[in-house]
Structure formats: C-alpha cells, structure tokens
C-alpha cells in the first residue's frame, strides 16, 4: 500500500520533470513574467518569487535537474563501483584488489564536503561538476559492497566449477558473478540516487554547483531572505517537492531491499 503510494508519487515527479524537459513551461522558470511576490493565480499556479519568476515552473525545472543529477550519478557510480568492486573481489589479494582497496581507503578518508569542495575549486565551474564530484564520492560504497559479495560468490560451487574448467576470467565475471550480484547493484543504485538528489540540493544551496540549471537547492537558497520577511511559498514548494521525492524513493528502496536481499528481510 505504502510502496504503491510511493511509486505513484515518483511517477508524478517524473511527469513534472518531463514537462520541463519538453518545454511545456516556456521560459517562465528563468525570466520575470509576473508581479514580485505575486499570489497564486490562474496564470501563476503557485504565485511568483521575489523577482517575479513563476514558482511552479521553477519547481518543475528543479524536478528535471534532480532526475538528471540522480540518474547520472546513480548510473556512473554503480557502473564504476560494480566493475571495480567485482575486479577487487575476484582477484582477492592480487594487485587489482590491493590497488582498488587503497583507492577506496583514500577517497573515504577525505570528508565529503572537503572532497566535493576541492573538486569544485579545481573544476572552476565547468559543466557537470556536481555529477563528477558526487560520483567520485559515492562509487566507493557500491564498490565495497560488490567486492564483499564477489568474495562470497568466488567460493560457490558454480564459480569454482567454471574456474577448474578453465573458463576465461571475464566470462566467469560476466556470466556467473555479475548476474548474482545484480540485485545489490539495483538496490545500491536507488540508494545512490537518493543521496545524489539530496546532495545536489545542498551543493546548489551552498552555491558550489555550475549554476547553469535551476535546482530546488537554489530555490531554497533564494528564499532564505524571503522566509524571514514572511514570504513562504517558494521555500515550502521547493522543500516539499524535495521531501516527497526523497521519501518516495526511500520507501521504494526499503521495499526493493525486502524483496531482493534476503539478509534484509524484515518480516521473515
């Protein structure tokens, strides 16, 4: 019941994001189209912000940005973490394992915002900075998980049988190890998606993004002066959108974990 509601909510946000991608809102998100701090009306469903931009259009554009960042980071870090994690686990105690484990330890030793900040400093506002930084920070979790799972799979009968028959390593990895670790990758990618959406908001709130797209984090940052003066609409719209999307995704992740990963089954 709860997870159906979550899926419906997710679908709603996909439609909202898609409406912005398809350009249904025109330029309303980025140019002044109404009064300053305008009240909700037929023309501006949720009113306008401090400089007269349509809040509903900006929320839709924010949804599009959230999905772009979440999808890109989830795909990239799952691919990177999956491949390197499998290699490290399969060549346990060999040089790939030592090298990759060292890299994991190094990246995890840097506090998150320092890593992202150093990258933001280095990239000097190049496009995709946020996606790059978040991927760099998040792939390690996936890699650790996949490495541990591969270590276990390597001791199973079917993998040992394939190894003794002299099947090539890459074939064992793609035919026997990867399919059996796929459920972990799916769960981990939803977890990464949520983390990326939340972090994107924090980074654009701090102004560390490339500043090109419109993000809920930007909307929240813009409204930080407004709320102390009693204009709550922009803040409420952006934060409610964020909370609903993240809550829906968290519920879906829990549900996936219950269904796919026997270790996490909460109602055995």
């Amino acid at each position: 019941m709860l997870s159906r509601l979550a899926l419906a909510l997710l679908g709603l946000f996909v439609l909202l994001g898609a409406s912005s991608w398809l350009g249904l809102w025109g330029d309303a998100a980025s140019i002044t189209t109404g009064l300053l701090h305008g009240a909700p009306s037929g023309e501006h469903w949720l009113g306008t912000n401090a400089i007269g931009q349509d809040i509903a259009a900006r929320a839709a554009a924010g949804a599009a940005t959230a999905f772009e960042t979440g999808l890109a980071v989830a795909l990239l870090s799952t691919a990177l973490g999956g491949i390197l994690g499998m290699l490290a686990g399969y060549y346990h105690r060999g040089w790939p394992d030592h090298g990759i484990s060292w890299l994991l330890a190094v990246i995890d030793a840097v506090p998150f915002y320092l890593l992202v900040g150093a990258l933001a400093y280095a990239a000097q506002g190049a496009p995709g900075t946020i996606i790059l930084a978040l991927t760099l920070a998040f792939w390690t979790g996936t890699a650790r998980l996949v490495r541990a799972e591969t270590l276990k799979l390597r001791e199973t009968g079917f993998v040992l049988a394939a190894m003794t028959q002299g099947v090539a390593d890459w074939k064992i990895l793609t035919r026997h190890v990867a399919p059996n670790a796929a459920h972990l990758l799916l769960i981990q990618s939803t977890i990464t998606f949520v983390a990326a959406v939340k972090s994107e908001v924090v980074l654009s709130f701090l102004g560390l993004g490339d500043g090109r797209g419109i993000s809920w984090g930007q909307m929240i940052a813009e409204s930080s002066q407004d709320i102390l003066a009693g204009h709550f609409t922009g803040f409420v719209v952006a934060s409610l959108s964020l909370v609903m999307l993240v809550a829906a995704l968290n519920l879906i992740t829990d549900d996936l974990q219950d269904r796919l990963d026997p270790r996490y089954r909460r109602n055995p």
């Binding site: 924090v202 929240i220 940052a221 709320i227 934060s239 964020l242 809550a247």
Partner: peptide
C-alpha cells in the same frame, strides 16, 4: 527514521531557524 532521513538538511535548518 525514514521521514527524518527524507527531509533535507537545508530544509530542516531553515525551518528550525524560522
């Protein structure tokens, strides 16, 4: 806990300030 995990740091920070 799920609700708490879903609400963004920035949102909590600004709401509590208000």
């Amino acid at each position: 806990a799920v609700l708490g995990m879903s609400i963004s740091f920035v949102v909590v920070m600004m709401s509590f300030q208000v």
